[in-house]
Amino acid sequence: MALAADHSTDTVLNARADARAQGGQVSDWMPYLPASTSPFAPDGVDPESLTWAETVAPGSYTHKVLARGTRFRLEDPTGEACAHTLVYNALEPTERLNVADTQKIPWQAYLGAGHPLLSGDGRVLATILADTSGRHDAFCGTSTAAWNALRYGTALPEGPAPAGRDLFVKAAAKHGLGPADVPPSVSFFQGVRVAEDGSFDWSGSSGAGTAVELVAELPLLVLIANVPHPRDPRPEYIVGPLRVHAWRTPETHPTTPADERFDASPEVRRAYLNTLDYAEARGL
């Protein structure tokens, strides 16, 4: 009732005027279009080079296809974001993040700067270039409706505690992918560590203002669900906004043999070789 009283919508013309009067407002979470208008362009990045600028609402999701060589940056302005992330080869999305290979091939379970996000096809989909958080997780995946119902009493997608998997399923659907195309994911900004007996020690966030920066090694479909980590011990569904920026400049490029990280290890070197081989053959 209160809402209706503020609107004059009795005719089409009035309704149109009323709708149009709502444009131009700002929210704490919204995409910025064109991306160059972002109020939060990362330091040192020419706003004109931005191709994606968005603040993702707590409990919501975003998705984008990025050109090969694009840099993208996830930022946690409050220390409460949790960026559950999936990446796919946008040209052939059966090639997607493989968490097992991402941990096994580099002989390292914890994500950080220099860590490749590997597909199951022996290639690097994206590389983590920089990381000021150090609190990430590749073990626990994201939340399901069953988990959130248990933890928070509700998991309705339209409710206050949506599950990460349900958001991923919707994001995937918008790129023609189905529920079977949502594999285990990684999460940024909320960490766990594995104790000697295998139990998970919650390390949580490292505070406000941290960021991770990645580069797309192939044309990349990125899905992000910003929901609490499933092992977050707090009884409330607590998650902060997530800031996303992506840009392309003459300096941004997929990893090549000229980059130090290309030779970081024999395993990752061969992964980059496989990636370049694929790109070359496809004429990318």
Binding site: N98, V99, A100, D101, Q103, K104, I105, A109, L118, G120, D121, G122, R123, F139, E267, V268, R270, A271, N274
Partner: peptide, 12 residues
């Protein structure tokens, strides 16, 4: 955690 081996990951 270790995942499955594959022709592709074997090359890595």
């Amino acid at each position: 955690i270790g995942g499955a081996c594959s022709r592709e990951s074997n090359t890595l």
